[in-house]
Design a protein around this nucleic acid. Structure first.
Lengths: 115, 115
DNA sequence: TCTACCTATGAACAGCTTGTCATATGTTCA
DNA sequence: TGAACATATGACAAGCTGTTCATAGGTAGA
C-alpha cells in the first residue's frame, strides 16, 4: 500500500461506510446465525413458539449439553428467553430481528430466487 | 435425555424445521457476514460499486494481504466478483442477497427500531 | 428423604479462522 | 530490460468456537 487511486473518492467513501463499532455489532448478530445447529434451534423455536432443552436437543440432533451451551450463548446475547417450569426450562425466541433475518435468508437462498 | 415431553408434537415439528443441509447452507452465508472486517468490505463495495484491493484495504483499515485473503474467501463463495485492469484488480458485490441481508440488519440493529 | 430427572456449567480438547510474513506472479513505466 | 508496483498465495501462529465429559444444582415423585 502506498497511495489511493483516488484519494478524494476514498475519503468521501470513508464517511459513508459502516464504522468499526457498527460493523462489530452487526457481526456479533450475524455470528449467532453462522452455525447450522443454532439455525436449526432458532428455526425450531420459531415454529414451536416454546420448547424445553430436552425436546430442542432431540429436534436438532445435538446432545443436551451442547444444546444447553448454545442456548446460554443465545440467551446472553438476548436472542432467546428462558422460562422455568418444574424441572424443565422452556426457551423461546426473544429477538424478532433474528427471526426476520432468518426469513429473508430462507426466502432468498432456499426458495429459488436466483441472483 | 430419555423422553420427549410430547412425542407427537416434536415429530410434527421435525418436518417443519430447516433440515441439516439447508441450515448448513444458510450458516455458510451468514458466516460471510459474521466478521466486522468483511462487513466493512461489503459496505464499502456496496457504496462504491467497485474498488481495487489497495483502496479497499485502506478504507477498512486492514493490510493488503489480509484484505486479499478475505476477498479470495468471498470470491470463492460467490459473494464478490473481480475485474482485472492493468495491475489492479477491481472487486464488486456479486450477491444481491447479501446486500439485502446487510440492509435489513443495519435497518433493525442500528437505526433504532427497538424490539 | 431418597432417587431419578432436567438443566447448567467448567474444563479440556480439536478444528477452524484470521492475521502476518515471505514470496511469487504479472504489470507498467523508465 | 530493470525497477517499482498491485495482488495472490502458502505457511505458520494466535485466538476463537463448539463439542464432550464430568459434575453440580434444583425439582418431582416414591
Amino acid at each position: 500500500m502506498q497511495h489511493a487511486h483516488d484519494p478524494q473518492r476514498t475519503a468521501a467513501l470513508e464517511e459513508r461506510i459502516l464504522d468499526h463499532d457498527d460493523s462489530e455489532l452487526l457481526a456479533e448478530r450475524f455470528k449467532l446465525l453462522a452455525d447450522p445447529v443454532r439455525i436449526r434451534m432458532v428455526s425450531a423455536l420459531v415454529e414451536a413458539g416454546e420448547l424445553c432443552v430436552c425436546d430442542l436437543a432431540e429436534l436438532v440432533g445435538a446432545s443436551e449439553s451442547a444444546t444447553s451451551h448454545q442456548l446460554r450463548q443465545m440467551r446472553l446475547a438476548g436472542l432467546v428467553r428462558a422460562r422455568k417450569q418444574g424441572r424443565s426450562v422452556y426457551y423461546r425466541v426473544a429477538d424478532s430481528h433474528i427471526r426476520l433475518l432468518l426469513d429473508v435468508a430462507v426466502e432468498h437462498y432456499l426458495h429459488g430466487d436466483p441472483r
